[in-house]
Design a protein around this nucleic acid. Structure first.
Length: 475
RNA sequence: GGCGCGUUCGUCUAGUGGCUUAGGACGCCGCCCUCUCAAGGCGGAGAUCACGGGUUCGAAUCCCGUACGCGCUACCA
């Protein structure tokens, strides 16, 4: 069996869409699971939509996600170049071959004529299709038009009354009547190929074995099939992936939330979580696993288990997965991620904070928000907690703790606990009457890690200072 | 309008003719654990399997039709 080669072929319109990430992921996993190659190809044949810096951004983002390609821009292999705008001569050659074979023809129709034609067809409730007007041009007329420099395109000549079969790995055999397939433009008047042409030529020349792409391409696959046949090339296998949807089930769009991978990245989502989440949108392992790391994904993935129907991008589950991946990471890994957020505390201290905070947050940056008291004295005391926990005896209890803690020498978490329990025992009231006021004094809020942990991490000086401060500020 | 694809709890999904009183996960609710908040454990609510016809002893699962949703219908990808 020949080598498995797949490609991810985005057009550089600015950013990596999460739907694109999923397409890239499935391609990547399919390749890796079959010991094949994952190719990145840039489809920049639309000069009007070109966005500067988009290619670099795409490559960076893909890299951040951990989807490294085997061949592509900056990683030239045997079948480059991998940017379509650098392959123009190839397309031109292929097109003239097609014209020679009469599989394609020149068309000199003006945009105005095409527009009128389309409007006419719409008015009469007909299919909007090109009427093959230029197919009947004599070779003399064509020569004349060409030499006079009249703008022209090249169109695919679709023969009528044919059934075109597309074998799709996910959807089975899909049939199209050639009468419903338009004479697609292959080469635009600016000399650039359309997607349909470039995609077929490149997939063939780059020896792509499986075309795995979004469902929006299924309808134009018959055109591609016709092209493979016109060139007399073997067809790759096709697999059309279901779409990603907005909560209202329309195609995932910018209007209803974030669609760019970099949006999620900047919001603090872990790449592992995003990738894991997107994996599950349209695929499942057949058992009940949901938490996946890359190696496990590669081992488990198969195209056979990809769904047919669209999936709503549901942020709640992504949040849960983010927390799962967060807890799965070691304290040291988390430290690296936390330190990028300009935190100037010593590693040893941060590690302690991470240890007690990591199962209480959904995002790394929440360590700063929910654990702000680790990085500075509380500026205020949460009114609800004060109301609930600051009882008539709290003041005197805190005073006793302050006195007892002062006597401790370089106290550990256990030392604080022993001291508190001893004082509570002597006072004859439950430890809770000491614990809650102490927590309020140290953190300013009602929740968080165990108080003894907080006190030990903060250290004796800070602990004493905050108790004294609370005694000063609370009634 | 034409062509194509799809339709199981709110969401992601399991299910490929009897094992299904349709299973799991997220979210939601409750209980347990507990100094609090989380995490974790346990439990609960939540799907007439879009609808209507068939086929069959038996259908979420096979067939036909309808509805709805989505995609394509560009010299965009």
């Amino acid at each position: 069996m020949s080598e498995i080669r797949v490609r991810f072929a985005p057009s550089p319109t600015g950013y990596l869409h999460v739907g694109g990430l999923r397409t890239a992921l499935y391609n990547y996993l399919f390749a890796k699971s079959k010991e094949g190659k994952f190719v990145l190809r840039i489809e920049d044949t639309d000069r009007n939509r070109y966005v500067d810096g988009a290619v670099k951004n795409l490559i960076d983002t893909l890299g951040w996600c951990g989807l490294d390609y085997d061949e592509g821009p900056g990683k030239e292999g045997r079948y480059g170049p991998y940017v379509q705008s650098e392959r123009l001569p190839i397309y031109l050659n292929s097109v003239s071959e097609l014209v020679k074979k009469k599989k394609a023809y020149y068309c000199f129709c003006t945009p105005e004529r095409l527009k009128t034609l389309r409007e006419e067809q719409q008015k009469n409730n007909l299919q909007t299709m090109y009427d093959k007007h230029c197919l009947s041009l004599s070779s003399g007329e064509i020569e004349h038009n060409l030499s006079s420099g009249i703008p022209h395109v090249v169109r695919l000549n679709v023969l009528p009354k044919k059934i075109i079969r597309v074998d799709d790995l996910i959807r089975g055999t899909v049939e199209f009547d050639s009468e419903t397939v338009d004479d697609q433009v292959l080469l635009k008047s600016d000399g650039y190929p359309t997607y349909h042409l470039a995609n077929v030529i490149d997939d063939h020349m780059m020896k792509i074995s499986h075309v795995i792409r979004g469902e929006e391409w299924l309808s134009s696959t018959p055109k591609h099939v016709l092209l493979y046949e016109a060139f007399e090339w073997d067809k790759p296998s096709f697999a059309h992936l279901p779409l990603l949807l907005n909560p209202d089930k329309s195609k995932l769009s910018k209007r209803q939330g974030d669609v760019a991978v970099e949006d999620y990245r900047s919001k603090g989502y872990l790449k592992e979580a995003l990738v894991n989440f997107v994996l599950l949108l349209g695929w499942n392992p057949g058992d009940e696993r949901e938490f996946f790391l890359k190696d496990e994904m590669i081992k488990s993935f198969s195209l056979e288990r990809v769904n047919k129907s669209g999936a709503v991008f549901n942020i709640e589950k992504l949040n849960w997965l983010n927390a799962e991946h967060l807890r799965h990471k070691s304290d040291e890994e988390l430290l690296d991620l936390l330190k990028t957020d300009e935190n100037r505390f010593p590693d040893e201290f941060l590690l302690k904070v991470i240890k007690v905070m990591k199962e209480r947050v959904g995002f790394i940056h929440e360590i700063h928000e929910k654990g702000s008291y680790f990085f500075g004295d509380p500026s205020e005391y949460d009114p609800d907690t004060v109301k609930k926990r600051w009882k008539p005896d709290s003041r005197v209890n805190l005073e006793k703790l302050l006195f007892a803690f002062k006597l401790l020498d370089n106290p550990s978490k256990e030392d604080y606990e022993d001291a508190l329990k001893r004082v509570a025992g002597e006072t004859g009231s439950g430890p809770g009457n000491f614990i809650h006021p102490l927590r309020l004094a140290l953190s300013g809020i009602g929740g968080g890690p165990g108080v003894y942990d907080i006190a030990a991490i903060l250290g004796k000086d800070t602990t004493l200072r905050r108790i004294a401060k609370a005694l000063e500020k609370l009634p």
